[in-house]
Simulated scan of single mutants.
Amino acid sequence: MTQRFEQTFTAAPEHIDELRHVNNTVWLEWVQDLATAHWSAAAAPEHQEQFFWVVIRHEIDYRGNIATGESVTGETWIDGDPKGAKSERRVDFRDGQDKIIVSARTTWAMLEQDSGRLVRVRPEILFPFQ
C-alpha cells in the first residue's frame, strides 16, 4: 500500500486568469507544493538533510477547474519503484463534489545536497512513503 498525502488549496484572486479560473501555471505550483510538503512530512530527517528533488517532467490532464474562493483537495503518492535517480509521483486534485478535475504524473530526480549530483534512490529513502 502506498502512503498518500493530502493538502487543501483555495483559489485566491491572484491565481485566476482571463478565463476566470485557476491558471495552468498555478496548478503546476500546487503540484510542486504538494510534493514538497509530502517529502517534508514523511522523509526521515537525515534524508531531508542529505537530498533534494527536482522535477524533470510534468504530464497534466485538465478535466475541470475552480474559481476564486473555491477549494480543491490535492492527493499525492509515489507511483511504482524508482529507476536510478528518478521516481514518479501522481497527483489528483478533487473539487468540492469529490470529482477529480486535475491529474498529474510527474517525474522527479533526487540530488545530493552537498555535490548537487544525481544519486540513486535507495529503498530506505522511499520506505516512509510506502
Score class of each variant (00 low, 15 high):
F51A: 07
F52S: 07
N65K: 10
W39K: 11
R63S: 09
P45F: 08
L34K: 14
V54G: 03
A67D: 09
V55K: 08
A44T: 02
A35C: 15
V55S: 02
W30I: 06
Q50P: 05
E49P: 00
V26C: 10
W30D: 02
W27G: 05
I60R: 04
R63G: 12
H47Y: 09
L28Y: 05
A37N: 07
A42L: 15
V55E: 01
V26E: 06
N23P: 06
Y62W: 13
I56Y: 01
A37R: 15
Q50L: 15
N23V: 01
W53M: 04
D61E: 11
W39A: 03
L28T: 06
N24G: 06
T36G: 04
N65H: 13
E46H: 06
F51C: 05
S40L: 12
E59N: 10
N23A: 08
G64M: 03
I60A: 04
F52L: 04
R57T: 04
F52G: 04
V54Y: 10
Q32T: 10
L34I: 09
D61V: 04
H58P: 02
F52R: 08
N65E: 14
Q50E: 10
V26K: 10
H38W: 13
F52D: 03
A67F: 06
A37T: 08
N24L: 09
G64C: 01
A67H: 14
A67E: 14
Y62E: 02
L34P: 05
T68I: 12
I66D: 01
A42D: 13
F51Y: 15
G64R: 07
A37E: 08
V31K: 10
E59D: 13
F52V: 06
